[in-house]
Amino acid sequence: MSGDDVRGALSLLLIAAGMLFFLAGSVGVLRLPDLLSRLHALTKADNLGLGLVVLGLMLQADDAFEVLRLLLVWLLVLFASSVACYLVARSALRAHGDAPTAAPEGPDEDTRDGR
C-alpha cells in the first residue's frame, strides 16, 4: 500500500462518511413529522455531509489554491444554509403562532396529499 493508496483510502473513507450524512439528512427531511424538525435534519447534511466530502477531496487536491476554494465553498454553504434555515424557521414560527406545536401529520398522512 503506497502512500498514495493510503491517502486515497482515507479520502474515500471521508467521502463515504459524508455520503452517510447526506443520506441521513435526506431521509430525515423525508420522514420527520414537521417543518422545524426537518430543518434540523437538513443542517446535518449541510455542515457534516458536505464538510466530510470537502475534507476527503482536500486530500486529493492538486494545489493549495484548490484546497482554499474547497474550504471557501464549504464555509459559504454552511453560512448561507444556516441563515436560510433560520429565516425559514422564524417565518414558520410566525405562521404557527407561538410555540411550534408538532403538526398532527405523520408521514403516512402525506399520501392523501400526493396527487
Binding site: F79, A80, L87, R90
Partner: peptide
C-alpha cells in the same frame, strides 16, 4: 428591516 438579512448582505455582498 430584518437584522438577519442585513448580516447576510454584509457577509455575502463583498464576497
Amino acid at each position: 428591516p430584518d437584522p438577519m438579512l442585513g448580516l447576510l448582505l454584509r457577509v455575502l455582498l463583498p464576497l
